[in-house]
Simulated assay, not measured.
Amino acid sequence: MFFFLKIPLFAAHLLKFYTDDMFEHTDDPNTTKNRLLKFVKKYKYHFYGWLVFLFYEIVMVGLYLNHFGHPVRYLINYLINIGLFYFHAEFTMRIGLLRRRISIIVLPLLFLVEIGSYTLLIFAAHWLLLQYTSVLGSTSVAFNYQFCISTIFRGCYFIVFSTGYYFLKNYLTERKKSDNLEKDQLKNLIQIARTEGAYLRAQINPHFLFNTLDFIYHNSRPTAPTAAEAISSLSEIMRYAVEVNPDENETLVKREVAQIENLINLHQLRADHSLSIHFYYDEDVLELSIISLLMITVVENMFKHGDLRNPKDPAKISVTLEDNELVINTSNRISQTRPSGGAHSGLNNIIKRMQYAYGNDATIKINTDNQERYTLEIRIKQKPVQYPATVRNLSGQL
């Protein structure tokens, strides 16, 4: 007796050994064999469970009755029963509970159809086996009360286990989702903590830097006014860059203009005021909005790659308002000794930021004249000013 009870456990371990060995030697995942092996590996615990169940049920019933049926009969009966198990879990329960309000009506109806179809299918399988094979021997098959009761009881037996499997599967799925959600929340908390730490460090370091620059400025001003002026301009530019709010993304044109003037002054001090630069802007543009650091990047690109020392051909920067468009123009001779590498990184960044911020409402044109002169034009459409309703009404009356 105990020998027969150990058979299913031994068979399950044997199946696990061979399947694991096969999976270690698979190469091409597109072959039919490997797809089948992947399927078996994915649902291997189902195979182990059914193997143990079938062996226990067949062996125990066979020992109890002292009789074992034909293998074909076992095969067909259990194929139908296993099919009922998965059909009930994957279709009947899923469809029946799809709408909670009417599930109390739909689920019993589906159950009756399911158990009726199962009974008819079992009868049809036994009748075919009796008519065309000798698997059932001399056993007769009759669709009577006794047959229906025993078949319905057998079907309900598998349906009960299938229902438990459905709820267990859903529980494990929801538990996995909950665990993943908790892990994501923990990662977010860690990321927020790191971000806050980085933000505090970013606040402390510039504060220390600006205090140091301010100290150097005041101490060098009496003896080295040029150096002090350069430190002041550099400090203003760096302070502006640090104080830019990345969430707001936009700033006023007048703030960019002020930093362009600081940038020009800083470069003039470095070059002993030998640079030829004409900077012009309309007063009307100062209160308009623009994405931060855009104009400064354009001008810095001109200093980096331009030849600005020819008084007969000076570099030009203009910021104007034309046909409700903010127009930024730069023009300069191309330096023959400009640094190689990274020449377009700043401009590529500008293009991406403009595309993100303005979409089709902004354009950028770049032109090089025989590799001697470089011109850039940016046009940004301005949104019409929305006046309050009372102002519009008064204007209409006037």
Rank of each mutant, 00 (worst) to 15 (best):
A11W: 07
A12Q: 14
L15M: 12
D21P: 03
M22I: 02
E57Q: 12
M60G: 01
H70I: 06
Y78D: 02
L79P: 01
L79C: 13
G83T: 12
L84H: 01
I102F: 03
S103C: 11
L107T: 15
L109T: 05
F111L: 08
L112H: 07
F123C: 00
H126L: 11
Q131S: 15
T133W: 07
S140G: 11
T151E: 03
T151N: 04
R154W: 04
I159K: 00
Y166K: 13
K177Y: 07
S178Y: 07
S178W: 14
D179I: 12
D184Q: 09
L186C: 01
I192T: 11
R194M: 08
E196H: 02
Y199F: 04
A202T: 12
F208A: 11
T212F: 02
H218T: 15
A228M: 08
A241G: 05
D247Y: 14
D247S: 02
N249I: 11
V253C: 00
R255N: 10
V257N: 00
E261P: 00
L263D: 10
I264K: 02
Q268C: 01
D272S: 05
H278S: 13
D282A: 03
D284C: 02
L294S: 01
K316C: 07
K316E: 10
I317M: 00
T320I: 10
L321W: 02
D323F: 04
N324S: 15
V327K: 03
S335Y: 03
T337L: 06
I351T: 13
R373Y: 03
L376G: 15
I378E: 03
R379D: 09
Y387Q: 10
A389K: 03
N393V: 14
Q397R: 05
